[in-house]
């Protein structure tokens, strides 16, 4: 599913390059549930953004499925994201003026799916994450856990092969965190490759594979 070779990326800070990813070699097969851990500033989010085609890298290579992700136009990157990748963020990033169904349906709008079909599929997904009865609620009428469920439903609505979650439980209490992880495990069991960035060991321990980053390099790669 994912194949990274010698991947490097640096940011330019005050005119000087600041290396963040210093040569990552990583293969994640289809169907895996992997956690990326590491201390703050170790480059977890940067790596996840590269995996999600949200950001470019400097050198090395990244293959997603059979696509070489390199030197893409913005339009092509948008298309690939829409088709192959679902995102879940720490702070949910739901549009506050859209109800749950409309939020979940948004990626389908950019996939060019007709309105009626969008809403049908969005409601199906809400049903799947256990929020069928909250379909017409606005985000501010939902609890944190419910918002993250809506976000997960949104990330799955285009049937992506890859789900990327950046600290999905970072804003939730431990009971709700467990529920969300239950859901991600369930999603993974249904066949989607899932990569979760986290610094919480409770969350990482739910993942069969744990990759630890230290200062832009893979320091540890555990399978259990």
């Amino acid at each position: 599913m994912i194949r990274l070779r010698e991947l490097r990326k640096s940011y330019v800070m005050a005119g000087r390059p600041l290396p963040v990813l210093k040569g990552i070699d990583l293969t994640i097969p289809t169907g895996e549930l992997a956690a990326i851990t590491g201390s703050s500033g170790s480059g977890k989010s940067t790596l996840l953004n590269v995996l999600g085609i949200l950001d470019a890298y400097d050198s090395g290579s990244y293959e997603l499925g059979d696509v070489l992700v390199k030197d893409l136009t913005e339009a092509r990157a948008a298309e690939l994201r829409n088709k192959y990748v679902g995102f879940v963020f720490q702070s949910f990033h739901l549009l506050p003026y859209k109800n749950a169904t409309e939020n979940v349906a948004l990626p389908l709008y950019y996939a060019g799916i007709p309105r009626r079909e969008r809403f049908r599929r969005a409601n199906e997904l809400l049903e799947r994450v256990g929020l069928g009865d909250r379909a017409d609620h606005l985000p501010n009428q939902l609890s944190g856990g419910q918002k993250q469920r809506v976000a997960i439903a949104r990330s799955l609505v285009t049937n992506p092969r890859l789900l990327l979650a950046d600290e999905p439980t970072g804003a939730l209490d431990s009971a709700t965190s467990k529920e969300i992880m239950d859901l991600l495990v369930e999603v993974n069991r249904a066949g989607t490759t899932v990569v979760v960035v986290t610094h919480e060991s409770v969350v990482a321990d739910r993942c069969p594979r744990r990759i630890r980053l230290v200062d832009g390099l893979i320091a540890e790669d555990q399978h259990s």
Binding site: G52, E74, A78, N82, L106, Y110
Partner: peptide, 16 residues
């Protein structure tokens, strides 16, 4: 800005 960034992440092309 946040909303537009999100829309792009979800697949909105610059042209759209």
């Amino acid at each position: 800005t946040g909303e537009i960034g999100l829309r792009k992440a979800l697949g909105a092309r610059p042209s759209s």
